[in-house]
């Protein structure tokens, strides 16, 4: 059943609507069912979650008799952004993931944010799917604020991701959807995978398998599920960042999610005008490349890769 979570009038004959689809057991609700919410489309250039929303519902509908709880799917909480290929909220140039928990009496984005929080609140788990951005490719991973580690790591291990990154707390991140929900007791897992403006089907299938496994653990699904893969779990100190020292065109010579050796060649930043190499990039440590630059043009400082030691 499609429901409208928030609706705002646009100037000319159009409504901005935040919609969700609710799937319920075939034999109706007793009132005691748990609910899982899958939310994505916060940034208009992150599309990986779109496929997951489709695929999860397809599998559930094909085996609806296995559904024992409620599944709410929110494919686009920034629908204008997705439609216009805009990362932020068009018209405001705001990052939607920096305005939570929102404000019912605030501006349009704050109002919508507050309605989304109200609607998601109380879920047994929320899976908040992101897709990096157009610049970086990410291996399927869950990112967890260290403050929520004890609650979230056991749930994240069910999601069939390759990697769980427990990162330090930063005040600025308190405006995110996940933080705002976790702080009111709604466990929320942030998934990052793939790359902006693309859909990586294998990652989508992998995560869908994991969401069904999580649903089974929560008592929302009694169908067959996979045994989730054992993720690598790490903290900030084990992650090395490689940033460009020069501007130019980055051409990698390693693959994503591949092992590298300390001082191993990661790639080069080329100068197409002079035909020279502006900078050669080497690994600062032994490890595995879990983030890799996808968009070739780099400025000084652009993130090239993250390596898990």
């Amino acid at each position: 059943m499609i429901e409208t979570v928030a609706s705002v009038g646009l100037p000319i004959d159009e409504k901005l609507m935040i919609q969700k689809n609710r799937l319920v057991p075939a034999n109706g609700l007793s009132g005691n069912e748990k609910r899982i919410s899958v939310v994505t489309g916060t940034h208009g250039d992150e599309l990986e979650g779109q496929y997951v929303c489709y695929e999860l519902q397809r599998r559930i509908k094909e085996n609806i008799e296995c559904l024992t709880g409620i599944v709410d799917v929110y494919p686009a909480i920034n629908p204008l952004g997705i439609d216009s290929i805009t990362r932020g909220i068009p018209g405001f140039d705001l990052d939607m993931n920096r305005i939570f928990p929102g404000l019912e009496n605030g501006s349009m984005p704050e109002y919508i944010a507050s309605k989304i929080i109200d609607d998601l609140s109380g879920s047994a788990a929320v899976v908040d799917i992101h897709a990096s951005n157009i610049f970086l490719e990410e291996i399927p991973q869950v990112r967890i604020n260290e403050l929520s580690r004890d609650t979230l790591v056991p749930l994240a291990k069910l999601l069939n991701v390759d990697y769980i990154w427990v990162h330090s707390s930063a005040t600025v991140l308190e405006s995110t959807l996940a933080y705002s929900l976790n702080v009111i007791g709604t466990p929320t897992l942030v998934v990052e995978m793939g790359v902006g403006m693309r859909i990586t089907k294998k990652y989508g299938d992998q995560l869908t398998d994991g969401i069904l496994a999580l649903m089974k653990e929560l008592g929302i699904w009694n169908g067959e599920v996979i045994t989730p893969k054992e993720p690598i779990i790490s903290e900030d100190g084990e992650v090395s960042f490689i940033n460009a020292g020069k501007s130019g065109v980055f051409v990698p010579c390693v693959g994503h999610w591949k092992n590298v050796k300390k001082d191993g060649h990661i790639g080069d930043i080329l100068n197409p005008l002079t035909g020279e190499i502006n900078e050669r990039i080497f690994a600062p440590t032994d490890g595995i490349v879990f983030t890799l630059r996808e968009y070739p043009i780099v400025n000084e400082g652009s993130l090239i890769a993250r390596i898990l030691a």
């Binding site: 990362r87 932020g88 140039d93 951005n133 610049f135 600025v172 960042f241 940033n243 043009i297 400025n299 000084e300 400082g301 652009s302 993130l303």
Partner: peptide, 26 residues
């Protein structure tokens, strides 16, 4: 363009900055 020309980040959301970080942090 209101925000940073390549990645659309806001320099006034990057302070105190980080000299080894991303472009607008630098």
């Amino acid at each position: 363009k209101r925000f940073w020309s390549t990645d659309n980040t806001d320099i006034n959301r990057m302070f105190p900055g980080y000299s080894l970080g991303e472009t607008t942090q630098r």
